[in-house]
Design a protein around this nucleic acid. Sequence first.
DNA 1: AGTTTTTATTAAGTCTGGGTAAACAAATAC
DNA 2: GTATTTGTTTACCCAGACTTAATAAAAACT
Lengths: 225, 225
Amino acid sequence: METKPRKVLIADDEPDILEILKYNLAAEGYEVITAKDGDEALEKARRTQPDLIVLDIMMPKKTGVEVCQLLRSQAGFKETLIIFLTAVNDEGTQIKGLETGADDYVSKPISPKVFMSRVNALFRRLNKTEARILKIENMTIDPERFIVMVGDTEVILAKKEFELLYLLALKPGRVFLRNEILNQVWGNDVIVGDRTIDVHIRKIRQKLGVDCITTVKGVGYKFEL
Amino acid sequence: METKPRKVLIADDEPDILEILKYNLAAEGYEVITAKDGDEALEKARRTQPDLIVLDIMMPKKTGVEVCQLLRSQAGFKETLIIFLTAVNDEGTQIKGLETGADDYVSKPISPKVFMSRVNALFRRLNKTEARILKIENMTIDPERFIVMVGDTEVILAKKEFELLYLLALKPGRVFLRNEILNQVWGNDVIVGDRTIDVHIRKIRQKLGVDCITTVKGVGYKFEL
DNA sequence: AGTTTTTATTAAGTCTGGGTAAACAAATAC
DNA sequence: GTATTTGTTTACCCAGACTTAATAAAAACT
């Protein structure tokens, strides 16, 4: 199965490293975007929506850690793969890196071979949890087409409604706390009142015309047909 | 299925190499055009619109790198395949070559066997994303003739309009994010405002007179008849 | 039952994002 | 060179998505 090339954004202030990594990634068919400081990395990440972001820890403008934190806190970058590069082989930094939400960690001096195997490993892992079409009984939720089918009638949900339903339907039966819902759908940093969720739930129930969301009082909601 | 022969332009100042490559390419059915310096290469490239350009790095008048940069910077040569030939087996030059926008790189002394396998590999890669005629219900989108037929009336779209419609129609129903659209139609590095997409969408809808593009607010657009 | 807590519903209000037209710029044709 | 077509930017408008707040209903607890 052939698929469109993975996009990789590399951010490092050392042109040599950018070149080496770019060359190796390109050689394996990745599409490469480069940035030379933290701000540029942020900007290009938002614009190009890469599949993987390689961040040098020590960079001008913003450090890799800062960039990572900023990205992770906003919608659309929750799932993006992030790898840190660092000259310090300091375990403390490594731990801090992974805690910030990075997926892997490569220390300089970088062996292209090692680097590429890490990259490939991450993508291999990702493939298993990619966005997919959900089918529960007579309901189909297709994130690619952004539609929900109930029986054979198409239901159109708004963005937040869809994301909320998709989240719940990912694990039918499992209860999602209001906090989880807020984090996943709205993002860690966004502050919205609790009632907002209720309103969206109501609209979903209304539009679908099927009672598939169960309230678990004092806890949260779950998807259940 | 019979198809018209691939055109290959070879530019090198060494007559021997020109001959060898020409012989091998012709033997596999390629149509070959030759040039003996950078200027001639540029001129013939523009005139004959080849599918693949083989450029020697070291050439009189203009180097291969210069020719490549000039071509890549103008419309019509963004997708053209480019292979560099070089005597120097210097990795620095190789990297610079690929960054300039070349698709592959062959070092001298050239083994005809290796060379041909690289050429064929490039075309194979290209084939997978090759332009093909799309037919969706009563609409035909022909990227070769740059024509859209709705019913039996011909609609003429401008370049960007066409590319945008073609992209969406490649996967009917699938939502394309604004980012994806920008990347695919405009390119990673080009910075254009978000409204630009809207305006093009509007012109397409207007010209086609058929509502075939659906807006998914906050997400993107999809083709849907 | 009465009280408290939590959720549902409704009706606003706000705000974002897309539509549209017109002006400007750039590329292309003439 | 000028004219024309194409591409982009800008600004304004509006629909509908989203949020909030207020009230009603339903559980949960005493």
